[in-house]
Each structure stands twice: as structure tokens, then as C-alpha cells.
Design a binder for these strands. Sequence first.
RNA 1: GGCUCGGUGGCAGAGUGGUUAUGCAGCGGAUUGCAAAUCCGUCAACGCCGGUUCGAUUCCGACCCGAGCCUCCA
Length: 458
Amino acid sequence: MPLRLYNTLGGAKEVFEPLVPDAVTMYVCGPTVYNLAHIGNARPVVVFDVLFRLLQTQYGTVTYARNITDVDDKIIAAAKQGDRSIESVTEEYTAKYREDMAALNALPPTLEPHATHHIDAMIELTLTLIEKGHAYESDGHVLFAVESMEDYGKLSGRSLDDMLAGARVEVADYKRYPGDFVLWKPAAAADPGWDSPWGRGRPGWHLECSAMIRALLGETIDIHGGGRDLIFPHHENEIAQSRCAHGGDYVRYWMHNAYLDIDGEKMSKSLDNFRTVRDLLQSYRGEVLRFALLSAHYRSPLNFSAELLDQAQSTLDSLYSTLRSVEDVALDMDVSLDGEPFYAALNDDLNTPEAIAAIHALSHQLHKATEDEKPGLKARMLAAGNLLGILGEDPQEWLQGTTADDAIGAEQIEELIQARQDAKAARDFARADEIRDQLIDSGVVLEDSREGTTWKRG
RNA sequence: GGCUCGGUGGCAGAGUGGUUAUGCAGCGGAUUGCAAAUCCGUCAACGCCGGUUCGAUUCCGACCCGAGCCUCCA
């Protein structure tokens, strides 16, 4: 089944074909480690994690790199503010980032390069750009000369004239042209810096991705992903650096996710309307957050709200209930993904909402299935869940698992259920209902069936 | 101002030139001691105005509204 991806460069869905057959290279812009990741930051992580899983079903080797930006103005500022070392800041937030993303069932990337480990490659890239006449040194800075590139602006669809029309580019007197951007800048004595041909300094924002991609994945990679707001200037400038340094295609498929909105406005650090993943994990399981992020297509804005999360929670509960009802059913090991609606949906530019709809269809069929049909349906449902990174928990544990604020324990619940059974057997329905109401007040829902009474927290 | 992208039923959210998205909520029924869950049925939408077409929510144009980028930001 061919995978089709929407390529920002060109603005259309294209059939995906890796440069090297059976081996895919993918790079996603990772965090600058100076504070906690918010749920908006988690969107690309979850989206590209689904892509990572999907690619692995079709290609023998999938190399997925996600960088850690550990040198940056904001890190320096955070260290100063907290009166602590740069390393202690970056180490703390790198560790927390990994924990938070793991809580969202995101697989670790194949490679997790740190910018500070690749300074040499950045200096080398800068030297090449100077040699080739695309960069110049000025007042201790090295700048990329955007006018030296024929089709600068192609990814974001803007020309140099367009950009100047905005007139909000930083005009600095060391720039030959206002749109030129920094490759290397001088470092203050107290700030982190590395020796370079231009004195002690540090890299500009865009340089690390170009340098690390070349060093780790090669001059041309298949997929480069990130949030929409990175299209310009970040990815545009990466293209400029890499193409001017070593020609060829830098990236074959550019993918950009839309953001999370809060009340119709972008969730962002600068607007201060964000919720951190860590904070949300106090109230919701990671899988609930993940499901919420996947409930809209990645290129559409997604309004983030308590209602969204509550709905994700109840949908997952319902799907896990279905799985619990077939807990004793063996798995058909022979299922094929080909032709599966959820698989077709994901292969169509990661249409996760449609894939979720297909899971609902499987769940629905499972309720009505004959015993013969159940092993196959269950296997298909779990396979779909696995690609989306959901439904992997034990259903019973999912439905009955305790969270921090649950007042009543499983043992006590079982005792009350037995007491209710006894009351029912004695046809004392008033007493039976009383017990059920008591459990509802404790957040426990009972479900009677011929086989007996099951319960879940809800 | 320049460049993008959107406006789908009560809500969330897919998709399509001509028969169902899906989920939640609602309504009717089955089931149940009563519920819950499940099953069956059901209501309801395509911003506005033109154009193309036998036929447009889907294509084209104008308009209105919204969001984003152009400055750190997923």
C-alpha cells in the first residue's frame, strides 16, 4: 500500500519513495531544553511517532533523529535566572522531556543528537559556506547572504521582496542585507562558547540541524518534520545552508503539523496560554493525551480543552471495554495490514481521525462477532492500536487501575459487589441499588451481564 | 502590507462532483428487577454570492469571517 505524504514544498500529497530503497531517514526538530514541554510541543512528537511506526511496517531500516538544542539564548537566561550552570539546566530538562514523551507512548528516536556535541561540524559547514561565497564575516559574526541563493524562500513561498515588505526583519549594521541570518556569533566571556576561526563564539539557531543532519543522516534525507511555525525562517534557512554548502536536495519531503489552539488562539510560550505535559499527566494518563492529539488530522488546528481530553478518556474507556470483553479470545497471528481501512487511512498522509473511525468500526464488529470471527477482529483492532500507539495496556488494568485520587480500593469494590449480589439474590433491590449508587459516588460503574458483574472506574 | 491555511450537523472532527464518516450528546426501541454496557432505528451540516455542470458541501471567481508566518516559539 503506497504511503502518501503532504509535502510542504509543493503543497500537495505525494507518493513517498525513500532515496535509498528500504531505508528511510527522518529528522524532526526537537526541544530547546530550558523548560518543560507543553502539550503543543508534544503534537509533532506524537504525530511523527505514528509516522515512525508506520514507516517501520514498510521499510527495513528507519533512522529517526530528533535533536536536543542545548545551546541557546534562552538556556543561558534560564541558567542565570536560576543561578545554576548551563549543564544543570539542559540535563534536567532533557531528562524531563524524555520522561514526558515516553509517558505519551512515543518511542525513543533512533538518534538524539545534542547540538553541543556537533560544534565542529557546524564550524566546518560555516567555513564551506564562506568558501563558496554564501557567507561572510562581519564584526565577529558570520552571516549567511540570502541574496547569494537563487531560490531562497521557496519552501515558505515568499520572495526577498515579500520579506522586506514586512519590514520586521532585524536590521543590524553588521548585515549586508537585512534578511541575512546568523551562522555564528560571538560569545560573551561568561556565556558558553567554542573557539572558532572567528574567535570564541556559538552557533546561530539554524545551523545545528543542517550540520547534524549531514553528519548523521547524509546530505539528503527523506523526511524533515516540525511545527508549522518552523517553516520560516528556520527550515527555509536550513535549506539555504545545506543546499548552498553541498548542493543536491536537502530534504525530499517536508512535513509540518498545525498547532494546538486554546480558545481559537495558538498555544504558545509567548502567549503564556499553555499547559505542560507534566502538569496534564497529573490528571490524565499519557495515552489519553496522546489520543486527544491524534483525534484531529495533524495539519489541522486542534482546539485543546478539558472537553477534548474528557472525550478522549471516554472513547478510550469504551475501546478498552470492548477489548476486555474479548480478553480470553486468542489472537489471530495471521492478520495482514494490507487492505485494512485503518492502514489505508494512515497511509493517506496520516489520517488519524479516519484510522480512529476504523477502530470504532472494528470495535463495533467485535461486539457482534461470532466466536470464529473474534480472533481476527481482535488482532486487527490491536494492530491498529499499535500503529497509533494506543490500546496497548491490559484492558482490566486500564479500566480498574487507580489514579492518585481514587478513594476506594479494588478489594472493597469487590466486597460491595458481592454484597449487592446477595441482596439481588434475596430480591432486595432497594439495597442492591443503594450499593450501586454508593459505588457510583466513588467513581465506580457496574455492568451486569450473564457472566456476572464487572466494574470500571469512570 | 506581503505570504500561507481554514470556515462541515448541539459539540469534536473526517471525507466526497450524484447512496453512511466516525465519536460524544439527543430521540425511539430491544435487553435489564431497575440501571450500565451492548444492539437496532432515528434527527441533524457543509460561511455568503455568483459561475461551470444533467447535478456541487466537493471545481472556479468574488465577498465576509477566523487563524498562522513575516520576531523566540511545535
